[in-house]
């Protein structure tokens, strides 16, 4: 029974990662936009929803006690809006500028989360985030499965929507822009406008994932949104195969299983005083894995279909 409850818990976390990875796949896999600060967008969603839905708290602004669904909607809107502004600033420039700027977003969001205590609770974070089935919490199995069901439904809805989008005229324009910007532009498609839309939508999905996770755990703090998160999600997408939504989901579950498994092995086998070092080594091995996959099989497990080409910069980055 405990095993079942844990399985549900594991799968819920993995599916939340899948949702982030789906957002990243829209930005990177479909459109070729490089987001190195996705932890920032996840954090924006999580904090937005937490501030709107928690009960009143004298120590900080917010605590509006709004319904959870409203919090999730707001998380999407705020994270999407931030992504749109970032996109508007950088998407007319070389792709590296977007990478550097998103990196900056993550740094600044982290800074705000840590220091704007009146808004975010500072290093102690926000607690008492309402959980969708809080009343079921006495029975862990029912509770975990109820959570799993919600997260699975949300992920499935976005998976199907993204699959549909990728095949729609809108998605075809994005692919065309990724493969050959000049040809697409000559057909009257505004590269910048389409990219900003895709980047904003991807950011919104990441924000939603952050919010869902916040309500699933019930507590958020700045250290949940460190660059390690960005790195994990990137590895998930690359392992699964960028460009493929199924790959994004599969890669998330697989990498999360490896992560959790190696983490459990570390805490079981390594003496307590050495565990921080072993955890560092765990990140080293994942980083090496990412680089090796990029070298050996850059299209990932499910991304290797011959008709899909790698997202390439036209003529090695020189427009």
């Amino acid at each position: 029974m405990e095993f079942l409850a844990y399985g549900a818990f594991f799968l819920t976390t993995a599916l939340i990662f899948s949702l982030i990875t789906l957002g990243l796949n829209l930005q990177w896999g479909l459109t070729g936009l490089f987001n190195v600060g996705l932890a920032g967008f996840v954090a924006i969603g999580a904090y937005t929803s937490a501030i709107l839905t928690t009960p009143d708290d004298a120590a900080r602004i917010g605590g509006f006690d709004l319904p959870i669904l409203l919090g999730w909607l707001a998380a999407m809107i705020v994270a999407g809006a931030v992504a749109a502004v970032i996109g508007a600033a950088t998407l007319r420039l070389r792709s590296d500028y977007l990478a550097i700027t998103t990196f900056g977003v993550a740094v600044v969001v982290q800074l705000v989360a840590l220091n704007a205590q009146g808004l975010t609770g500072g290093p102690f974070g926000v607690g008492f985030i309402p959980r969708p089935f809080g009343s079921l919490a006495e029975n862990p199995i029912v509770f975990n499965f109820a959570n799993l069901a919600i997260v699975a439904v949300v992920t499935l809805v976005f998976f199907l929507a993204l699959e549909h989008l990728a095949r729609s005229p809108w998605g075809r324009v994005l692919k065309a822009l990724r493969e050959d910007e000049k040809a697409a532009a000559s057909l009257g498609k505004s590269a910048r406008a389409y990219r900003i839309q895709a980047f904003a939508l991807g950011g919104a999905i990441m924000g939603l994932a952050g919010a869902v996770q916040a309500h699933f755990i019930g507590f958020i703090a700045p250290e949940n949104y460190l660059p390690t998160l960005t790195f994990q999600v990137w590895t998930m997408l690359i392992v699964g195969g960028s460009g493929s939504n199924r790959g994004a989901v599969l890669g998330s579950v697989l990498v999360w299983a490896i992560w959790v498994g190696s983490g459990a092995a570390v805490s079981a086998l390594v003496p307590t005083d050495q565990q921080a070092r072993a955890a560092a080594l765990q990140i080293v091995s994942i980083g090496v894995m990412l680089c090796v996959i990029l070298l050996v099989r850059p299209m990932g497990i499910l991304g290797g279909t011959p008709k899909r080409k790698a997202p390439a910069e036209p003529a090695a980055g020189r427009p």
Partner: peptide, 11 residues
């Protein structure tokens, strides 16, 4: 693919 190089530098 220059952006893959950027990602590798991140890893």
């Amino acid at each position: 693919q220059m952006i893959i190089v950027v990602m590798a530098s991140f890893g």
